[in-house]
């Protein structure tokens, strides 16, 4: 049986771990609010943009803009992978990374080259270990993504796609379904999928709009901005999801620690009781032996 002091030591160690995970849980809870507020604040813009694009999309044919045109051959694909800078968030990062890597392996099997833009230290580390060097990488922004990063990513992929360097651009990120649950999302950034833009609810008034200076000009300004919005949305959505995932992971870690402490405490009590019983029987035995001698 483990001795008393060893058990006590373990109890102490688990208790301090529990304190840390509890604190992290509370910090994440506080941060969720801020992160979701940001998503909410950004929603009016993306909604208005979708509506506008929707008004245009009725008249947009594939050939009308290079960002809409699908390339005939798929030879070079770009993955934008959005992860977090810090771990301890359960399967948050590994979900994204494994899915993206699986897809990449499948692509490579078909002779398609895959390049990466990585956001978050975790993804950079993961791919560095596998000897993959990304085209662009962003570290230290996962908790506080700004529009600047989104603009840089968006302008890079736009130019790459328009120049024909890339034939498809896909973004992988975690979507914060609510404060507790995350969904892995994989969206096609380029070519812009007009059918996804055309929603059923806002159809009808398309024809009545005037366009200034003209339709093509508006479209060619709106599409790049739309890509930017998608990237920005992915970044802030992922930031909100990260906090949610961390809170969940830390909550279950705290619960586990509580269970372990209970078990250890029980062991400790049993061991102590055992020691006392042994001691008593030794004293009784010793006293009996003394009596006999008299």
């Amino acid at each position: 049986m483990a001795n008393l002091r060893d058990i006590k030591k373990r109890i102490n160690s688990v208790t301090s771990t529990k304190q840390i995970t509890r604190t992290m849980e509370m910090v994440a809870t506080a941060k969720i609010r801020k992160a979701t507020d940001r998503v909410v604040a950004a929603t009016p813009y993306s909604e208005a943009m979708l509506k506008m694009l929707n008004n245009l999309a009725g008249n947009a044919s594939e050939a009308s803009h290079p960002l809409l045109a699908e390339h005939a051959e798929k030879k070079h694909v770009l993955f934008v992978i959005v992860c977090s800078d810090r771990g301890l968030a359960g399967a948050f990062n590994s979900n994204v990374l494994h899915t993206a890597e699986k897809k990449a392996v499948a692509y490579q099997g078909q002779g398609v080259t895959v390049d990466y833009i990585l956001c978050g230290k975790k993804s950079i580390g993961y791919f560095a270990y596998r000897g993959v060097s990304p085209i662009m990488k962003f570290a230290g922004i996962s908790a506080d993504p700004t529009l600047d990063e989104a603009r840089r990513i968006a302008s890079f992929v736009r130019e790459g796609y328009a120049a024909g360097t890339y034939d498809e651009v896909v973004i992988y990120y975690n979507h914060a379904r609510n404060a507790a649950d995350q969904d892995l999302r994989c969206e096609q950034l380029l070519p812009v999928d007009v059918s996804a833009v055309k929603s059923d609810e806002v159809q009808g008034p398309a024809a009545t709009f005037d366009f200034e200076p003209n339709e093509a000009a508006v479209l060619s300004k709106l599409l790049p901005a739309y890509v930017e919005t998608m990237v920005y949305h992915a970044l802030i959505d992922s930031a909100a999801a990260e906090q949610g995932a961390r809170r969940k992971a830390m909550k279950s870690a705290t619960d586990n620690a509580t269970d372990i402490i209970n078990t250890l405490q029980r062991q400790y009590n049993r061991a102590r009781q055992g020691a006392i019983t042994t001691e008593i029987s030794e004293i009784v035995g010793g006293a009996a032996a003394l009596k006999k001698e008299e």
Binding site: P205, T208, F209, D210, F211, E212, A217, V218, K221, L222
Partner: peptide, 11 residues
């Protein structure tokens, strides 16, 4: 733009 403007999308 004032009230009653035509529906318009402009850059």
């Amino acid at each position: 733009v004032m009230k009653g403007h035509e529906p318009l999308v402009s850059t």
